[in-house]
Design a protein around this nucleic acid. Structure first.
Length: 945
RNA sequence: GCUCGAAUGGUGGAAUGGUAGACACGAAGGACUUAAAAUCCUUUGGCCAGAAAUGGCCGUGCGAGUUCGAGUCUCGCUUCGAGCACCA
């Protein structure tokens, strides 16, 4: 019987769907295993062969775990909010919900064809009100929480309110936007609106006036990770800095926990490193400087407190509030001109053009250690958002300060013995300190660092600064709070309305607050976000429902928030929702969460390292603090699948003709390489007829062939329509079947490695499946499996395979597991094995990789149910033992010949036999044996002189 | 600039410090066939010697080192990829 993959795959996909084979429920009697893929954004282009790579890898693992007796949760859903659908809506007027729905249907159809064991009953969509109910709910909880630094935990805002009313900010150690100081009396004297305003300083979800990345073309703000090289990640439009009132999430409060948590999870080092970079912990010192002839004092942050004696100027960020305070009358005009000029430069220009710019403020700071006067400058190389927005500049030991000092002719004082600072600064934190203080300079309390190493000097300075109350030791993080508003339509609405200028939450029981219909998806004439076009977008506080805008009276009916949430909102806790997707009382029930706990295996791309993977860790930690999630980290193990790149093909057209020349001959002509659709090229040979039919202008094409063939050139590029190198999984499935596609995607290379899609090798996987099928249904014969006892050889092949496949799956080394199957099937075919005792375990082993064919064979073997529930075979060491072993014999490390020994031969026996073997005599002639190394089972190395 | 990772035939890629190139593709030759497709068999890192069996030498980006023995470990480079980047 032929291997008819079309019938087989259709049959089992239908059966799995109708019988809900992969639906799971918590089962306390069984250990759980939670496998998760990063859910896709359903784009209009559909899936290409790169998308399923991770899904197949996790599907194999899920099926394997199920076979091992685990209750496996393997859900799938859609990250359905996003810019492309909205941009498309703006262009076509099509409602994003409609296009999203269509795209999802297409994705589902494509996914179904590949035979995944997803539990579709648990599907979630971020744009579904039943889903975003809980996104809004989490936001509301963040709004109503603050972060206590002392207990390192989020707490209800009422606790803070109570404390403020009792003791004010005295001794308060909480995460905050800026350090406020007031007494209990002052707090109690505030109006409600004033109190609410103050609380914004502490809330985990807060409305903050911050510099944001504003993208005029997209009409929205973007998060830092959505801006790449100064342009928007989506669309590549310019991004400018703009001060706006925005919802923010106080992610920075969790910086230390986000950093520490990395040590507890099984992620790749490179990904952890990326997150460590992004969090950017830096331990340093804050020091206070007073200003000459002024009451103003300001604080700077430095990691090199030891260089205090080398400070020759101070620098303020242009946006710093100190600029106004420190600019003298004489410098005012110049400073203002400079501020104006910097404002105009976009971030991109600043990155592209790093010329040194700056202006003198006119003021002088006083070095607290020496009393020396130091000029205060303003320059955009100092960032307002990091540290205190002010620095002490030590040109001798900081390259940026050095560049600035050289440009404006400021003095450079070297502080490290032997450091040559005539050409460049000496930035390394090493060497022996000198000039600290210089001769003739007296330092406060006789403080002296000379002769110490840099490390010692840093420690000594920190101690001194703390003791003399000149500042404090401080840890700074680069991680910024996440900007959480987007001026877009297609996103989760905020459950917020504005009363007396202050945001108020709509009550939790009124959630979800559904996204309203709008007349158009563009910003309003007055520049408000698209939700400003909604006619019915106001909150009636008494009726507790959404009403027409016309009803707004600011006493009972109030306007609702017009921004929506960003893309990462919906994807931050979806793994929790999968545990309990239908629950309308809670994001996830305590029971469901207690059973499924956390994701055991998460598979997805590393491009989310500083976006989704940070946000969802933050989000989950917050929910952990609330007691909603029982685990602090959401994803115990993470495997990054590599990107599948495109493999483009080229034809070479002779210039000004319609003649195409084959690759090998192209150098003889003046040619233009042109992309050609990879789907009409096979093994780099062009299908000439298909090419002529591909485009009208090629209908009359002529060819110069080599050996009667047209050979195309190729290159690895991004998979994209414009390169004509997109390979669609449905086409592969149509031609070879899903099982072949699955095997081939795994066979292509290590899962975590980026690699080009090359359809050339796919035949090998198809042939393998046909061969495997042939063991059960040989050609020109019926069913071949018998109850015959397996031979020792059969069992050896089988157990070798069990061992290899089990190990490979555990290590995600699928690309080596597939060849193991090929070898085993080859061996069994040669052995003419028909024994059920061997073939049945083979089916179970192969099932995770090629579920359809294995399901069919499993049923042919007379079983019910699904092959995934069959017990995973265990290997038995005894079958792997050999009667004899072949050892290679080498002389001075160079292998010369092999010898067979009994499996239990002793080292001495092996050594003696090797030395006495006739083959060895040739190499021993005239030589002296120095020593013999015997590694049992491996090698005999004879060292001769 | 800093951090992390990679480099092996024509191609994708295998190799607990122990016979480098598994397996697959491609290529060449052969069988079957009227023919083609499909299938099966053989060869396939390079160079040299030989009629052949076979034998020899060289080979894992480059240069050192450790070791009886290095693709694998250490150090120094080169190239490519990824992340961060005026973060004080």
């Amino acid at each position: 019987m032929e291997y008819n993959f079309r019938d087989i795959e259709k049959k089992w996909q239908t059966t799995w769907a109708t019988e809900q084979t992969y639906h799971v429920e918590p089962n306390p009697g069984k250990p759980k295993f939670y496998v998760l893929n990063m859910f896709p954004y359903p784009s209009g282009a559909g899936l290409h062969v790169g998308h399923p790579l991770g899904y197949i890898a996790s599907d194999i693992y899920a099926r394997y775990k199920r076979s091992q007796g685990f209750n496996v949760l393997n859900p799938m859903g859609y990250d359905a909010y996003g810019l492309p659908a909205e941009q498309y809506a703006i262009q076509t007027g099509q409602h994003p919900a409609v296009t999203t729905e269509q795209n999802i249907a297409r994705y589902r159809e494509q996914l179904d064809k590949i035979g995944f064991c997803f539990d579709w009953q648990r599907e979630v969509r971020t744009c579904d009100p039943k889903y975003y109910h809980w996104t809004q709910w989490a936001f509301a909880r963040m709004f109503n929480s603050f972060y206590c630094n002392r207990c390192q935990q989020a707490k209800p805002i009422e606790h803070l309110v109570k404390r403020l009313s009792e003791r004010g900010t005295e001794g308060l150690d909480v995460a905050q936007t800026e350090e406020l100081h007031f007494t209990a009396e002052e707090w109690n004297a505030m109006t409600e609106a004033e109190q609410l305003q103050v609380l914004m300083n502490y809330r985990i979800a807060y409305l903050g006036e911050t510099m944001v990345n504003w993208c005029p073309q997209l009409g929205t703000v973007l998060a830092n990770d959505e801006v790449v090289d100064g342009v928007s990640e989506r669309g590549g439009f310019p991004v400018v800095q703009k001060k706006m009132k925005q919802w923010c999430l106080r992610v920075s409060a969790y910086a230390q926990r986000l950093l520490d948590g990395l040590d507890t999870i099984d992620w790749t080092d490179s990904l952890k490193e990326t997150q460590r970079n992004w969090i950017g912990r830096s331990e340093g010192t804050e020091m206070q400087f007073s200003v000459k002839d002024s009451d103003v004092k300001f604080t700077i942050f430095t990691t090199r407190a030891d260089t205090i004696f080398g400070v020759t100027f101070m620098v303020l960020a242009p946006e710093s509030e100190l600029v106004a305070q420190l600019t003298t009358e004489a410098q005012k005009a110049e400073v203002e001109a400079y501020l104006e000029a910097t404002k105009k430069r976009t971030e991109r220009e600043r990155i592209a053009d790093r010329r040194v710019t700056g202006v003198f403020s006119g003021s002088y700071a006083i070095n607290p250690f020496t009393g020396q006067e130091i000029p205060v400058w303003i320059s955009d190389y100092v960032l307002a958002g990091y540290g205190t927005g002010a620095i002490m500049a030590v040109p001798a030991h900081d390259s940026r300060d050095y560049a600035f000092a050289r440009h404006f002719n400021l003095p450079v004082i070297p502080l490290i013995e032997g450091a040559d600072v005539s050409e460049e600064s000496f930035d390394a934190k090493e060497g022996t300190v000198m000039n600290s203080p210089r001769e003739g300079v007296t330092a406060l309390d006789g403080f002296c660092l000379n002769g110490l190493s840099v490390k010692e000097a840093i420690a000594a300075t920190k101690k001194f600064v703390t003791e003399h109350n000149l500042g404090r030791v401080k840890v700074n993080f680069r991680l910024r709070d996440a900007i959480f508003s987007r001026q877009r339509y297609w996103g989760e609405p905020f459950p917020v309305y504005y009363k007396e200028g202050q945001p108020h939450l709509i009550p939790e029981e009124c959630l979800p607050l559904e996204l309203p219909e709008v007349s158009k998806f563009l910003p309003t004439e007055t520049g408000e976000p698209p939700l400003g076009n909604a006619a019915r977008w106001a909150w009636d506080e008494q009726a507790r429902c959404v009403v027409d805008n016309a009803a707004i009276d600011h006493t009972r009916v109030f306007p609702l928030e017009l921004s929506t949430m960003p893309g990462f909102a919906g994807s931050s806790a979806y793994y929790l929702r999968y545990m309990d997707p239908q629950n309308d009382q809670a994001l996830v029930s305590t029971e469901a969460d207690a059973y499924w706990q956390q994701v055991d295996l998460y598979i997805g791309g590393s491009e989310h390292a500083t976006g989704h993977l940070i946000y969802s860790r933050f989000w989950n930690k917050f929910l952990f603090d609330l007691g909603v999630s029982c685990k602090e980290e959401p994803f115990a193990k993470l495997v990054n699948q590599g990107m599948i790149q495109g493999r483009s093909n080229f034809v070479y057209r002779i210039k000004n003709t319609n003649t195409f020349v084959s690759l090998g001959l192209k150098d003889q002509y003046d040619v233009t390489p042109l992309h050609v659709d990879v789907n009409i090229v096979q093994n780099d040979l062009l299908d000439l007829e298909a090419f002529k039919a591909w485009r009208p202008e090629y209908a009359s094409a002529e060819f110069i062939l080599e050996d009667g063939k047209y050979v195309c050139g190729w290159a690895v590029e991004k998979m994209s329509k414009s390169m004509f190198n997109v390979v669609n999984p449905d086409m592969i499935v149509e031609k070879y079947g899903a099982d072949t596609l699955r095997l081939y995607e795994m066979f292509l290379g290590p899962i975590n490695q980026s690699k080009p899609w090359d359809s050339n090798g796919i035949d090998g996987c198809f042939r393998f499946l046909r061969k495997a099928w042939g063991l059960f249904y040989p050609k020109n014969a019926g069913w071949a499996v018998t109850d015959e006892a397996p031979t020792r050889e059969n069992l050896k092949t089988l157990h070798k395979l069990i061992k290899k496949v089990t190990e490979d799956i555990e290590e995600f080394s699928y690309n080596t597991a597939v060849p193991a199957f090929m070898i085993a099937v080859g061996e069994l075919a040669q052995q003419k094995c028909s024994s059920r005792a061997v073939l049945e375990p083979l089916v179970v082993l192969l099932a995770p990789f090629a579920p359809h064919i294995c399901e069919e064979l499993w049923h042919s073997l007379g079983h019910e149910g699904t092959v995934c529930d069959a017990r995973w075979p265990e290997f038995d060491e005894q079958y792997l033992k050999e009667d004899s072993v072949t050892l290679s014999v080498s002389f001075n490390g160079k292998t010369r010949f092999t010898l067979d020994f009994a499996a239990d031969a002793s080292k001495q026996d092996i050594e003696a036999a090797a030395l006495q073997s006739p083959q060895a005599q040739k190499y021993l002639e005239g030589k002296q044996v120095v020593k013999v190394i015997v590694v049992p089972g491996r090698i005999v190395n004879i060292v001769v002189k």
